[in-house]
Amino acid sequence: MLNRVFYKYKELILYGFFGVLTVIVNIISFKLLLILNIPLLYANTVAFFIAVLFAYYTNTKYVFNDKFTKKNFISFISMRISTLFIDNMGLYYLVSISVDELIAKSIINIIIILINYICSKFIIFKKK
């Protein structure tokens, strides 16, 4: 029974698993950059791109079982860059109202994961 549930929801489970790993990559990168005294929004932007590269690799290879193509890569990066605005503005807002920066980063990442899954599933890695 557990196997049936896994196979029925395999894509969603794998997306969630790699989404959590992507958030961890993002947060660790972010924190390390802050330790290096990189300004908040610069650290967030660099951490974001590190996490996006990790996410592209894992989404393509493990979640959606697709080929690494220039078109997919450009679409994926473009979509993720569009969520960078949400990431930076949300982080800036939450920190400005005294939410701890790591808690703020985690909250924003949950929202972005949902947006990214919808775009990845139905636009970038859409089955033909």
Rank of each mutant, 00 (worst) to 15 (best):
residue 12 L to T: 12
residue 47 A to P: 01
residue 30 F to H: 05
residue 4 R to P: 07
residue 8 K to N: 10
residue 75 S to G: 12
residue 124 I to M: 08
residue 117 Y to N: 06
residue 91 L to Q: 00
residue 93 Y to S: 13
residue 24 I to H: 06
residue 44 N to M: 07
residue 71 K to D: 02
residue 46 V to D: 05
residue 98 S to Y: 09
residue 86 I to A: 10
residue 72 N to D: 09
residue 61 K to Q: 10
residue 107 I to L: 12
residue 79 M to S: 14
residue 89 M to N: 13
residue 26 N to M: 10
residue 60 T to G: 02
residue 22 T to Y: 00
residue 11 E to S: 11
residue 42 Y to D: 07
residue 84 L to R: 12
residue 89 M to Y: 15
residue 91 L to V: 04
residue 63 V to A: 03
residue 55 A to E: 02
residue 117 Y to W: 12
residue 5 V to C: 14
residue 90 G to T: 05
residue 90 G to I: 04
residue 55 A to H: 00
residue 72 N to A: 05
residue 120 S to V: 03
residue 61 K to Y: 13
residue 14 L to G: 06
residue 85 F to S: 14
residue 55 A to Y: 01
residue 42 Y to P: 08
residue 121 K to H: 10
residue 28 I to L: 12
residue 61 K to S: 08
residue 40 L to E: 09
residue 55 A to D: 00
residue 37 N to D: 14
residue 20 V to P: 00
residue 98 S to F: 13
residue 15 Y to W: 11
residue 125 F to L: 12
residue 91 L to K: 00
residue 69 T to L: 08
residue 76 F to H: 02
residue 67 K to Q: 11
residue 122 F to D: 04
residue 127 K to T: 13
residue 10 K to W: 04
residue 64 F to Q: 06
residue 90 G to N: 04
residue 75 S to C: 06
residue 122 F to W: 12
residue 24 I to E: 09
residue 68 F to E: 03
residue 45 T to I: 11
residue 34 L to M: 14
residue 73 F to C: 13
residue 33 L to I: 06
